[in-house]
């Protein structure tokens, strides 16, 4: 069969299928995916904003004379920028701390802190010699800003974080805290 006949046959197939398209169910599923994606974007930026606000508060507190917290100059160890370390424990999920504490009216259960590694907030970071660690509360969405996984239904949950502030008052790194009930 010569090429013209082949092209004719192919055109017939193309014309026959011209109106073929995905069913309405596909559009529904894709739009549901779009809504999930949009929600993630919103929480991501909410997390960024919360983290920025938290860091700004820390910086202000520091410059206005923070309460001193003992800090070993050799610790914490801040990983190099862009080399985000894995959390030292399971992914930090929304924290049941308050709920857990309130669940036992007679005797508060013991809790144990589980922390992630520190994540750098400055890139590149100037040399670190002295500083302080300040504990702040942020929405869980803030963890996404450093690449940690957070379940979608926990993005708004409050979590606690330790922010390392250098002696010049700049926030250097952050780690997230989870409280495990023992």
């Amino acid at each position: 069969m010569n090429e013209d006949r082949v092209l004719q046959a192919l055109k017939a197939l193309a014309d026959n299928d011209r109106e073929s398209e995905a069913s309405a169910k596909v559009e529904e599923r894709v739009l549901r995916g779009f809504h999930r994606h949009r929600a993630r974007i919103r929480w991501h930026w909410a997390g960024v904003a919360a983290l920025a606000a938290g860091v700004a508060i820390v910086a202000v507190l520091w410059t206005n004379g923070p309460r001193k917290v003992a800090v070993d100059s050799a610790s914490p160890v801040i990983p190099q920028a862009r080399k985000l370390a894995r959390p030292s424990a399971a992914p930090v999920a929304a924290l049941p701390r308050h709920a857990a504490l309130e669940s036992s009216p007679v005797r508060r259960p013991e809790t144990r802190e589980v922390v992630t590694d520190f994540f750098p907030l400055m890139n590149p970071a100037p040399p670190f010699e002295r500083g302080q660690i300040l504990r702040v509360q942020l929405p869980a969405a803030a963890m996404q800003t450093v690449g940690l996984p957070v379940r979608e239904d926990h993005l708004a949950d409050p979590i606690e974080a330790d922010v390392v502030v250098g002696e010049e008052g700049m926030p250097r790194a952050i780690r997230f805290v989870r409280f495990d009930v023992q």
Binding site: M1, E3, R5, V6, L7, L10
Partner: peptide
């Protein structure tokens, strides 16, 4: 196209 031509020949 040539292969198609053979298949449909």
């Amino acid at each position: 196209r040539a292969m198609l031509g053979q298949k449909l020949a």
